[in-house]
Design a protein around this nucleic acid. Structure first.
Length: 693
DNA sequence: TTAGGGTTAG
């Protein structure tokens, strides 16, 4: 037997080693006498201890330590030295492969088992099955399952659970249907698989089936999954039925059940009931807190969400990556960069797993707040960025008007060996649209299935039609639409309609609008855009017809609202608003600004004013758009140099966009406008969106 | 030896 030479490495596991040295078990090799300090330090180096363990034949201990330290290569080396390893050595190695999701290690152990002639019992076989299933190697799992002479319920459950978790729901269901008998594990695996992969109705159907034929099998696990199913539909009635069942059966003592219950009420729109349950819970854990915080954000209750997050920090329970991701996402949605930065600081102070998705949530937050410098800094600091992090950065650059950086990072992603998915391509295609790179966009579009083997999604089609339509290449756009294998969706038609508006393509606009009227007759945006197109063409009778159709169908144009927060108070403006207490000052200031803007060369774009009125009146209509009022109020109510942040519920209009560019230069202010579509950061006469939105 | 609640990118 050749002894391995373990190289010294930084010990993170000193405590475990000490425990081993001090344990009674180690007295086989060391005397009972207390260790001298010199001996202690000699033994307390990994290579010393590991070599010694191997020399003494204590391979199991050596493998334990190596697995704990994730030194799998060396653990396998030790295994390969052994002719007849014990079942517990195999068990340790398989367990470690499962925990660390290292398929290669598991495969080597399996090979060793086969070559050594060791006949694994049901327990080891099931563990191997679990290893393959959890390491995304379902074909191997199925092969092993087929080869197994003896199987028990656990063997079936492990494989079903593997298929269900990975989204192979049909395979899972086939096995579930033909298995000889079912237990709690089988039902839970199948129901949660459906929930996880967006098949909530199938999950609920299975819950009903369980209730019908196997009601005795329901326990806290199946009930939590059933609640998740009701939450995902969402179906409050069934959720309440499950709630009653929980109260009847005394399952209400379990924290997870409570959490799932609160989540169900939240997702079914009863946020107060969710909070009621949350408040009644005795032992709230981090999951419960996170779920409740997220519910507030999802329900648009920003203040309550941040307040509860603050309560969580005060409670002494440590937030985890899910909590951070949720709060950061809210910051991203609300463009709350300052709060996001505080959360980031907190994460650094208490430490967070750099391999977790909290990192990508940070990249996303900074991207959505327009701070690409920080987004890139966080990204570069990630030890192993995953696809979501790459995609966040690429999409961030595309959205913020830096298409070249977006495409540069996409090329880096390909070089890194990460396989892009359909969402990554949405970012790539939108970057091409920003840059007007039509031919490159078409190349990327075709590469999606030719080079990457992915199917085109409705989003990809919408992006490419957007790109072609904006460039006025309508014939190619129509060719693509006519050859589509999936039904064009509303986003595609809306993109086409937008392109038609720019290039005044009345005929195609009518086709797009017709499709949109069919898909979503209730959306006022289509009517308004069509009316604008007719207005631009001077076809006032058609404009009137559109208005009448809107009236007949009861479609109401959503009023444009802009708001700005000053000293924690929101000030809301509508077009031509004179209701604000400082309205006079605002209008006076806008008048002055308007004069300065014209001196600087600003020409109002009156194309999109609906009413059939004189040009001068159109200008007046434009100058009181809600976003301009909010910006003006922001400037007069904050000290010189303070950035202004305005929100708008609709897309900002072309005229306002140009005007705010001028205002940012004249007033020397950074002005951030977050409209319904995207984020604009105006500075020194330019906008971060590169005039694309 | 197998199962449950909160999960980041468009």
């Amino acid at each position: 037997m050749q002894f391995l030479n373990f190289k010294s490495s930084r010990s993170l596991y000193l405590l475990n080693l000490n425990k081993l040295i001090a344990s009674p078990y180690s007295s086989q090799t060391h005397s009972h006498k207390p260790l001298t300090q010199k001996t202690f330090f000699r033994l307390n180096t990994e290579e010393g201890l590991l070599n010694r363990l191997c020399k003494d034949g204590r391979y199991k201990d050596a493998i334990d330590i190596l697995c704990q330290q994730k030194r799998f290569k060396e653990a396998i080396q030790v295994l390969s030295q052994l002719d007849k390893p014990s079942a517990s050595i195999y068990s340790t190695l398989i367990q470690s492969s499962i925990q660390n999701r290292v398929l290669e290690v598991g495969k080597k152990v399996h090979e060793h088992i086969k070559l050594s002639g060791f006949v694994p019992g049901l327990v080891i076989s099931n563990r191997l099955l679990e290893m393959y299933a959890k390491c995304d190697s379902l074909s191997n799992a199925q092969k092993l399952f087929d080869e197994m002479i003896e199987r028990d319920l656990c063997s079936w459950n492990v494989l079903i659970s593997g298929y269900a978790k990975m989204g192979f729901l049909e395979e899972a269901r086939k096995m579930f249907d033909k298995m000889p008998e079912r237990d709690n594990f089988s039902w839970t695996a199948m129901i949660s698989g459906y929930v996880r992969h967006d098949k909530p109705n199938e999950a609920l159907e299975l819950c009903r089936m369980m209730k019908r034929c196997d009601n005795s099998k329901s326990n806290k696990f199946t009930i939590s999954s059933a609640l998740a199913a009701a939450a995902a539909v969402p179906c409050l009635r069934i959720g309440k039925e499950i709630h009653c069942h929980i109260m009847r059966t005394g399952l209400d003592s379990d924290e997870v059940v409570w959490s799932a219950l609160s989540d169900m009420y939240g997702k079914c729109g009863s946020i107060e009931e969710a909070r009621h349950i949350f408040d009644k819970m005795v032992n709230r854990d981090v999951v419960t807190w996170t779920a409740m915080i997220d519910k507030y954000f999802e329900g648009g209750k920003r203040e309550e969400g941040f307040d509860l997050f603050a309560d969580l920090l005060r409670s002494g329970i440590r937030p985890n990556e899910f909590t951070f991701a949720g709060v950061l996402n809210a910051c991203a949605d609300l463009s709350e960069e300052e709060v996001g930065k505080q959360v980031h600081g907190h994460m650094i102070r208490i430490g967070f797993d750099p391999f977790s998705f909290a990192g990508s949530a940070l990249v996303h937050m900074y991207s959505k707040c327009g701070n690409m410098v920080n987004a890139e800094r966080v990204f570069r600091g990630m030890p192993r960025p995953d696809l979501v992090s790459w995609t966040s950065l690429i999409a961030g650059y595309a959205q913020n008007g830096h298409p070249n950086e977006a495409l540069h990072y996409f090329e880096l992603l390909l070089k890194s060996g990460t396989q892009p998915d359909h969402i990554t391509f949405v970012g790539v295609l939108s970057a091409c649209t920003h840059a007007g790179l039509v031919d490159e966009g078409l190349q990327y579009f075709h590469s999606i299935n030719k080079e990457h083997g992915l199917n085109h999604t409705a989003d990809h089609y919408a992006c490419i039609i957007d790109l072609l339509a904006r460039s006025g290449r309508f014939e190619e756009a129509e060719n693509i639409i006519n050859k589509m294998t999936i039904k064009p969706d509303k986003f595609l038609w809306a993109s086409l309609l937008g392109g038609c508006r720019i290039h005044r393509n009345l005929k195609l606009a009518e086709r797009a609008a017709e499709a949109l009227f069919e898909i979503e007759p209730e959306n006022p945006a289509t009517y308004v855009t069509m009316a604008n197109i007719y207005a631009t063409a001077g076809m006032w009778s058609e404009v009137a017809k559109i208005r009448k159709t809107m009236d007949d169908r009861g479609v109401v144009k959503k009023p444009g609202l802009s708001w700005i927060e000053i000293k924690r108070k929101a000030h809301v403006f509508i077009v031509g608003d004179t209701s604000h207490p400082r309205s006079k000052e605002i209008h006076q200031f806008l008048g002055k600004l308007s004069k300065r803007m014209k001196e600087e060369g600003f020409v109002p774009d009156t194309n999109f004013v609906l009413h059939d009125v004189e040009e001068e009146q159109k200008e007046v209509n434009l100058s009181y758009h809600s976003e301009k009022l909010a910006v003006a109020f922001g400037i007069i109510s904050t000290p010189q140099g303070t950035p202004i942040k305005v929100f708008k519920n609709l897309r900002t209009c072309v005229d306002c966009h140009t005007a705010i560019k001028f205002i940012s230069k004249i007033a020397s202010r950074k002005i951030i406008v977050r409209d319904s579509n995207r984020f604009h950061c105006f500075e020194d006469g330019n906008c971060s969106c590169g005039d694309f939105w």
